[in-house]
Design a protein around this nucleic acid. Structure first.
Length: 308
DNA sequence: AATTTTGATAGCGGAATGGA
DNA sequence: TCCATTCCGCTATCAAAATT
């Protein structure tokens, strides 16, 4: 752009917003058409502070400073293991793993040089605000599940007055997401048989965050602030009988948070079992809540992106 | 150092829904 | 009407953190 308009840097501004997902340590704000300022990405600053206090003894330094290098590292993994089932990859990496749900993450952590099970212990990821997520496609490339993200801190959610100050805004706006994409060997195949397909890296579209995530934030916030949360029994539609959970034999209940039927972004609870509902909001005891995005939306979104 | 609790990841499973 | 898909509260598992 400089070569065509060296005297007028503003002509390049629209392109800067488009370059956001290429920039690892810097970011620009606000976005086009407003005049951009440069700033350090917030997760990077946090990591610098953390490193100072040596909070992260397991972190390794793979010495990567740009996304093209990062992408290349992921591409090497893809070239080696594309189409291979998870158990074969484990074997090749020297990981002795039973059929458990932690494998997906453990494999990646190992590849990035950490023997820890958690990818968040890999400094590279936290340093530059990369959030890894795995997604499994059905044999015909459709969604198998919806996607769970972070848990909800209701104090934070209601304390902040504006969406732009909220944690969920920061989560979706200021982070890169790397998706580890797997495909089922056959319908409902066990996890370790799933084939590794590849990586995709995205930043969520500003417009999507501003509409869908803002909707979720506003709706949930209003429900809690206005004390409009309600819990009700789940009843069988045919007979009207109350449903009971299979393991704890407690009545199943629902809370009137946004559901996946009405919204791409919604809340869903999680916990050890129905007898252990630890969260308390508006006097209602409930599972710890997480925000989710619909699986079909995620698959559509990723379909538009190229593999690394 | 051993044990318990918490919480994060990823997915299960039974009922409702929808298409052929 | 049958069967596949979707919905959504619930659950298996593991490891980190807290507690003893």
């Amino acid at each position: 752009m400089q070569t065509t308009h060296p005297e007028d840097p503003t002509v390049g501004y629209p392109g800067i917003s488009k370059l956001r997902d290429q920039m690892m340590i810097m970011d620009t704000a606000p976005k086009w058409p407003k005049k951009p300022r440069f700033r350090l990405k917030e997760p990077f600053l946090k990591e610098i502070v953390q490193a100072h206090f040596d909070k992260n003894p397991h972190a390794i330094d793979v010495n990567i400073s740009s996304f093209s290098q990062f992408d290349a590292l992921l591409n090497n993994f893809t070239l080696k293991y594309q189409g291979k089932p998870l158990n074969a990859i484990c074997e090749d990496l020297g990981l002795n793993i039973k059929d458990n749900k932690g494998v997906v993450e453990k494999v990646m952590a190992k590849y990035f040089g950490s023997n820890e099970a958690k990818l968040k212990n890999v400094e590279l990821f936290s340093k530059v605000g990369i959030i890894p997520k795995s997604i499994t496609l059905s044999p015909n490339g459709k969604r198998t599940e919806d996607m769970k993200f972070d848990s909800v801190d209701f104090d934070e959610w209601t304390e902040n007055e504006t969406f732009e100050e909220s944690a969920i805004f920061d989560y979706f706006s200021n982070h890169n997401f790397v998706f580890l994409i797997y495909e089922e060997a056959y319908k409902n195949a066990p996890l370790k048989k799933n084939k590794f397909i590849g990586f995709k890296r995205i930043m969520f579209d500003e417009d999507f965050v501003d509409r869908k995530i803002r909707d979720l934030w506003t709706t949930v916030r209003n429900l809690v602030v206005n004390n409009e949360l309600k819990e009700e029994y789940i009843r069988l539609k045919k007979t009207g009988e109350i449903r009971y959970t299979p393991t704890t034999n407690v009545p199943m209940t629902r809370v009137n948070f946004p559901k996946s039927t009405e919204n791409i972004a919604f809340l869903r609870g999680t916990g050890s079992d129905a007898a252990q509902k630890t969260e308390m909001v508006n006097g209602i005891r409930m599972y710890r809540q997480y925000f989710w995005l619909r699986g079909d939306f995620m698959v559509d979104l990723l379909d538009k992106i190229d593999y690394l």
